[in-house]
Design a protein around this nucleic acid. Sequence first.
RNA 1: CGGGGCGUAGCGCAGCUUGGUUAGCGCGCAGCGUUUGGGACGCUGAGGUCGCCGGUUCGAAUCCGGCCGCCCCGACCA
Length: 477
Amino acid sequence: MADRLPKQSEDFPAWYIEVVKRAQMAEHGLAKGSMVIKAYGYAVWERLQKALDDRFKATGHENVYFPLLFPAKLLEKEADHVEGFSPQVAVVTYGGGQELEEPLVIRPTSEAVIWSTYANWIQSYRDLPLLYNQWCNVLRWEMRTRLFLRTSEFLWQEGHTAHATSDEAVEESERMLGVYKEVAEDVCAIPVLAGRKSASERFPGAVETLTIEALMRDGKALQSGTSHFLGQNFAKAYEVTFLNAEGELDHPWATSWGLSTRMVGGIIMTHGDDRGLRLPPALAPVQVVIVPIYRSESEQTEVVAAARRLHEALTATGVRAKVDDRDQHRPGFKFSEWELKGVPIRIELGPRDLAAGRAIVVARTKEGKNEVAFDDVAPQMTDLLRGVQADLFEDARSFRDANTHEISDYGSFTAGVASEGGFWVGAWCGDEACEEKVSAETKATIRLLPLEPSDPGANCIVCGRPGKELATWARSY
RNA sequence: CGGGGCGUAGCGCAGCUUGGUUAGCGCGCAGCGUUUGGGACGCUGAGGUCGCCGGUUCGAAUCCGGCCGCCCCGACCA
C-alpha cells in the first residue's frame, strides 16, 4: 500500500510539504532556502509569467534586464530603503581570488540599480514615461523559509516606471494593481482583496504600497502582489532630474510593482484538497489526461489508439492533453497520481466505453463521473475547462467569504483571529500603537485598508477613539 | 539567536534503555509470471563506511566526549 497524503484539515504544513514534494514541483537546492523549481512547477510559473507579460505589453511596458550584483553603496542612498532591506541582503566581498575593494550586494530588489541607471536615461519630459519591467531572481536572507511561500531566492517580475507627474505615477501604480487582481482572479482563480498598506507595512522607500491579499485554506492571508507609488524618493536619492515642459528642473515620479513565484504557493494553498493539488486550467501544464484501460494486449492496442485519436482532437482545439500510456501502472494508480498533480480533467477510456462509443469524463472539482459520447468530448472540452476554472474560483471565494468577519468586539476578534484565522474587518484610529497591540497579542496585522480612505463611521476597535480607516486584519505568511 | 526534536538502504522508520553471530521492516527499484474500470499480487534479487572524528571495551548502530548537518516552533519578511 502506498502512503496516503496527510489530511489537509488535520495537518496543514505537512499536507503542503507532501503535496509539493510528491507533485515534484520543487525541492530544496544546495543553499538553505534557495529554490530549485522542477519542471512541473516551472511550467505553472511559465504560464503565469506569460499571462502577466501579455498584460504588461498591452499596457505599454517593455522588458529589460539589470545586473544581479551591484555596489553596496548604491543601496545605501535611499534611507528607508537601506534600513528596510539591509538585514536581508547578501553581500559579496570576495571575487577573482581577492577581497573586493567595493563590496557588491546580490539584489533583494532592483530600485537601486535601476534608478542609478535612470539618472543617465532621463533628461527631458520627452524621455518620460519610462515603462520597464524585468523578469529575474532576487535574494533575501530569510530566517525561516517555506517552499514557494518564502524562499530566500525567488523568481519574480519587477516593474519600474518613471513619470513626469505625480498623478500619472499614482495612476500607473493603480493600473498595475488592477492587472495583478485580474491575473490572480481570472488566471489563478484566487479571489483577492485589493487595498493600501498601512504605513508600518509599506515597502521601504515607498509613499504608498498597494496590495492584493488572498486567504489561504488554513486561515492565513497571503500578500500576493504589490504595487508601489514611490513618489520622488528614489529620484531624489539617485539624483535623477529632468526639464519639464516649462523648462524647470524637476524630479520624476516613480512606481515599482512585483509578483513572484510565491503565487505558485498561493495556488497550492488556495485550491488544494485532501487528494492533492487542484490546478486552475489556465495554468495547468496538463489540462486533460487520458487514461486508457485494458486487460489484454489486443484491448491495449485498440484503446490506446482511440486515446491517441482523442488526444489529437483535443490538441486541435488548443487543449493541453496527455495520454498516460505507461504500462507499469494500473488505472487506479494513475487516477490518484493525476489527482495529486491537480490535472483539471481526466478521461477514462476502456473497452466498455469503446463498445458504447463514449468516454468517461471526470472533473477534479466534482465528485461523479460522466459518460460523454466519444465524438462530443473534444468539442465540449473548452467549456468543461472553463467550468473547472469557475468552480475553483467559486470554492475559494465562498471559503474566503465564510472566513471574513466583521469585528463586533475586541475580545472575540483577538480570540477568533488567533484560533480560526480569516479576515477581520473593523475600524482603526490610524495609530500605530493600536496596530502593534493587536499584532503583539494575536500575530495578526493589518493586511490592507480600502483603496480610497474613508470614514468607517465607528470607533477604533482597539482603543475606542474615533476610527479613521476601515482595516482588514489577518495573520499572514 | 532562543525553545524542542532528529540523523540507520532512494523514501519512511524499528533496533540503542540493558554492547555480543551475516543490522531489520514497509514503500520504492530490477527480473520473471499472473494481473489491469480507484493507489495489484506472488516468487527471486540488488541496494548500508548505522552523519563525522576520537575514546572506553575482547567486541560499539548501541556507552562517553567533541564536531557537523537537518527539521519543527518563535523573532525577520514578499
